[in-house]
Design a protein around this nucleic acid. Structure first.
Lengths: 189, 189
DNA sequence: CGGTCTCTTGACGGAGTTCAAAGCTAGTGG
DNA sequence: CCACTAGCTTTGAACTCCGTCAAGAGACCG
């Protein structure tokens, strides 16, 4: 059972075959069909999710009853509502597959036990969190400095594969603009 | 030498007096006057900064040559340009004191050495990064769902001490609106 | 093929910006 | 301790980016 998560961990720390066995005791792997829910609103987000293969989106329903996407996750990314995960409070978000996906999850208690048994993984998760935070800082900077038009163009040129893989209206939502406006922008090019 | 950082760490993990001595070998403490720079644009952000006492802001200069604040840090907060810190690349940001401040800093190599000598701190930093990421996710959600007017009101009621301590135009900048518009909003109340 | 998603078009409106100017406030030096 | 200046806040008018609404055209799936 040699999944992508192991490759991912080994990019950051060493891991013996024995330690992999330990790791595997604590994680859970499942397959999801397209549009299946990994997390539903009002449930506590008890897991960190790692995308082995596939594509997820995280969104909430805003005051106008419209889905607002805040994050995507592709192969090799972690995703979670950390506020809910840390505080054990109901989540405001849905996490849902966009395509058929293979997801590894680890829940609060298991993560705790795993980190006790294999403290070197603290380092791995520290690095992951640090990187994600760097990413969040960067996205935030782009949103501060760019007009929506520039932000859209920037996104399309930075992640062309993504634009192929995910419907327009989801990208619009993630970037904080309406499908109508995206449509107008595409006409320009 | 019993600084606030130790209290902060002890909220998350245990730390013996001996371990404190080790820690103190690697960190550096300095005092800054009002408006002094902790980091300047184009320099690599080589440190994580912990605010012992005082107040910092992190900002960049946007295309219109206007300061755009992306983050504040008060007593007991960590702050850093992680993208620059991780990749050793020049930063786009300035970090500057708003008031006279006492700052603890730890640079890349020292952090590395410290974490080797005191691996249990990996856990502390993992938790810190996790919490900051949760905070970033939360701020991002607010920016997606609220109008600027609501965002401003929300901020003022959530952090009244902050509004006392920091000039209006900095809060405006942080929230992504113009000082003129803030002025208009204040008149309403 | 029928129905439900997804994308496009165009007219209109409004939240929030820009610009320019004036009124405050607070820190500094004499 | 006063006066000056630079920095901060306020006003108001004009403008614009982008959202809203309504309707239609494709596209995909069972």
């Amino acid at each position: 059972m040699h999944h992508n998560l192991i490759q991912h961990i080994r990019k950051h720390i060493t891991l013996s075959d024995n330690e992999i066995l330990t790791l595997n005791k604590y994680i859970e792997q499942s397959n999801y069909k397209k549009k299946e829910f990994v997390l539903q609103e009002n449930n506590v987000c008890r897991n960190l999710y790692f995308v082995e293969k596939g594509c997820l989106r995280m969104y909430f329903i805003n005051a106008k009853a419209v889905e607002q996407i805040v994050q995507f996750a592709l192969d090799g990314w972690w995703i979670s509502d950390l506020k809910s995960f840390i505080n054990n409070t109901p989540s405001d978000y849905y996490i849902q597959t966009i395509e058929e996906s293979k997801i590894i999850s680890i829940n609060t208690e298991k993560l705790d036990q795993l980190l006790n048994e294999l403290p070197k993984l603290e380092r791995y998760f520290r690095i992951i969190m640090q990187k994600e935070l760097a990413g969040a800082q960067f996205k935030s900077k782009l949103m501060y400095e760019m007009s929506k038009e520039d932000f859209y163009n920037h996104f399309c040129t930075s992640f062309p594969e993504f634009v192929q893989r995910v419907p327009q209206y989801m990208i619009a939502s993630y970037l904080g603009l309406t499908p109508e406006y995206v449509s107008e922008l595409r006409k320009k090019m």
